[in-house]
Design a protein around this nucleic acid. Sequence first.
DNA 1: CTGTTAGCGCCTTCAA
DNA 2: TTGAAGGCGCTAACAG
Lengths: 363, 363
Amino acid sequence: MTVTLADVAARARVSPATVSRVLNGNYPVAASTRERVLRAVDDLDYVLNGPASSLAAATSDLVGILVNDIADPFFGIMAGAAQTQIGGPGDGSGRAGGEKLAVICNTGGSPERELTYLTLLQRQRAAAVVLTGGAVESPDHQAAMAAKLAKLADAGTRIVFCGRPPLPEGDALVAALAFDNRGGGRRLTEHLISLGHRRIGYVAGPPERTTTRHRLEGHREALRRAGLDAESGDGEGGDGERLTVHGPYDRRSGYEATLDILRREPGITAVVAANDTVALGACAAVRDQGLRIPQDISVAGFDDLPFSVDAVPALTTVRLPLFEAGARAGRLAMGKENPPPGGIATIAAELMIRGSTAPPRVG
Amino acid sequence: MTVTLADVAARARVSPATVSRVLNGNYPVAASTRERVLRAVDDLDYVLNGPASSLAAATSDLVGILVNDIADPFFGIMAGAAQTQIGGPGDGSGRAGGEKLAVICNTGGSPERELTYLTLLQRQRAAAVVLTGGAVESPDHQAAMAAKLAKLADAGTRIVFCGRPPLPEGDALVAALAFDNRGGGRRLTEHLISLGHRRIGYVAGPPERTTTRHRLEGHREALRRAGLDAESGDGEGGDGERLTVHGPYDRRSGYEATLDILRREPGITAVVAANDTVALGACAAVRDQGLRIPQDISVAGFDDLPFSVDAVPALTTVRLPLFEAGARAGRLAMGKENPPPGGIATIAAELMIRGSTAPPRVG
DNA sequence: CTGTTAGCGCCTTCAA
DNA sequence: TTGAAGGCGCTAACAG
């Protein structure tokens, strides 16, 4: 039924081992022999049996890329970029060569699914795993992840974090590319403060995620440095709680949280959103209240997704080099690039000042 | 080093065969035995060897989802939705159960990479393959695809098209969910015509793709029905060529093509874009020319991606139920749902009229 | 440079 | 309901 290595060997009048060597290209083979083998492969339309190959070699050509939400371009861009480094350009023949199969796994942000996918990849003896985006900070989950990743690494799977802080235990097993969420958040709020804003609403992400926490910490640090923490700081029971609302990283959350903040604190002059998608919702809410951006309320986002520059007015935000980071993670996963010193690199975040922020109205 | 089925069997004091049966759950096993085996699995932290299992069973639990560009939410939404039906909810333990591993493969729109990924999936003996988005119409590629898909289907891989027209040969091997791109395109342009527009620019996608062609055909059909084809129709050498510009499905293309059209045909009163992303670029171009939307120029898109409603003014577009279609494709791939009659279902496209279109200025 | 020989770890008849 | 045995298709020593 299906043609096997042995069939190819028979037709090329060589041993199965030779066919294997030609196909894997890891061993010297006479040019004429190789020629003959390749012709037999084409004649017979032979396709390697992946499972058999993986079983014998005790490794597979699968590389897993874990993302929270593939419908979100934040992850789509990173995952796509990683894949460009992993899949290889192909040989243009449709015949697969030495490429790895880069597979994107959508966890939906669920810790359980994250672990499940890791188990699935462990099963497949994946060559590498790239974990993107922030982590959930529950101690249980972190411990489970650390254990699972240790096992994977133990089995020879390369582990790369992309846009995700390294594990607390700081395993040297992994390379980590961490975004400077805290610094970016701080500079963004400093920008607003320098424009003259004093009461700034903050629409945060889900409280349990590292990304959320880091961005918020940056925001509050800026407030504190400016001596504004009495008004908007993080003191228990202070005003900070009225000015900060948590919610998922989506448009709707931005819309509703902003309405909420505006209702409770009509005196705010700016809203900072946890990311650009949330910011879009915030903009809609501001407008629906009959307020103008930026004349009445300044709005800012985070990430600088492609659509942000097209918002009207264009969104002030913090640019994260998602494509570059994803590509680098892909290269690290393939062993094409050496890990950064200490295994950890921090990726800079750049403030992008655009039309959605301006000085508050006087009076 | 790594624990195998045999280790589990030894610890549970049963034969390897019994362990296998417990794990696969396809055979009757005494409850007490099963209990013992499962405990041994947990104690030993056993993880099934996927390749070995796939080799022996001649099938794997991999499901491939092919997309053109995962950074584009159009594909991200479909792929994510498909994955929800394929990955299964997990058992909440991090221990993988009978789930399939849904993997997203990013072709970048390249026919070669599409074929390469199919070969890779064929290698892995994938359980199913979902192909999303439009196809490239080159006869060579179509033939190659048909041959490859036939082989996959032959090996037991289920094939599902999602948002993609069935192959010309109309293999009964596949289930196809096709978007009504033509009808959507037609109704969108009819809407503009009914508002009074007579000279309408069209920023099309890459000419070789089915999606591009179908949407454009719908557009031209509307023009023809309104007797406008002399002005903007598809006649050879006619004005249609001046009013239609092809380019990739991205923002930049929308921006540049729109500038181009406006330069050559300052008299147009509306621009239809091949999709929402392109439309965003078109909007930017219109504004940069000092024109207002919709007072001076109406702009419309296609797809109704999440950000479209947040454009200012909100984008008139054609809604495609991407999530629903993706989820259905996932179910078809899993065999959870029966294929539509004839293997083909057409998914309706709904006109969404918003603020970016209005009657043209009089005079 | 090429052939021979053993498994890789699991599933699946066949018997018991 | 359970065990024994063979083989899935390939790779990786080891010879030659």
